[in-house]
Amino acid sequence: MRIEIVVNGDRYVKEVMADLSLLDFLREVLGLTGTKWGCLTGDCGACTVLVDGEPVVSCLQLLRQVEGRDVTTIEGVEHSGELDEVQAAFVANGGAQCGFCTPGMIMSTEALLRANRSPSESQIREALSGNLCRCTGYSKIIDAVLQAAAERA
């Protein structure tokens, strides 16, 4: 089927199979491999992207379900090659170790900070509870989100 979609501000028109997932479209068709997969069952959150600003696990989303909408991936977070506040805070606070959960974690954080400019620690934990991290124990990720929120405020 023919589909039209905006990813990171660029409009794409592609012929795809009707059962193609958003994740496979991003990784295999567009080559945007920054979005990761860890389970393909929606449990790990590594494949989180934004669809019209809302966090979505792209492994469970069919591409045709997001037809015509605006998708942002980790590759679309930087501004002209500069890290945004969330990315910079993850770097500075040790919020990324192996880095495999990091793109999804950052996308969930971007969604949270759009909805809530100064979240409490428990609100951050709740918002990130769908993103599993095995390396950090979450403390440094939460430090990073608090710092990013403070810088944006």
Binding site: T33, T35, I74, L83, A88, A96, G99
Partner: peptide, 20 residues
């Protein structure tokens, strides 16, 4: 407290893992 040298690549999705 030195930030990890590989962190900028990781927060931008540029890091290449085997499946990439």
């Amino acid at each position: 407290r030195v930030a990890k040298l590989d962190a900028p690549a990781k927060v931008t999705g540029r890091t290449v893992y085997a499946d990439d």
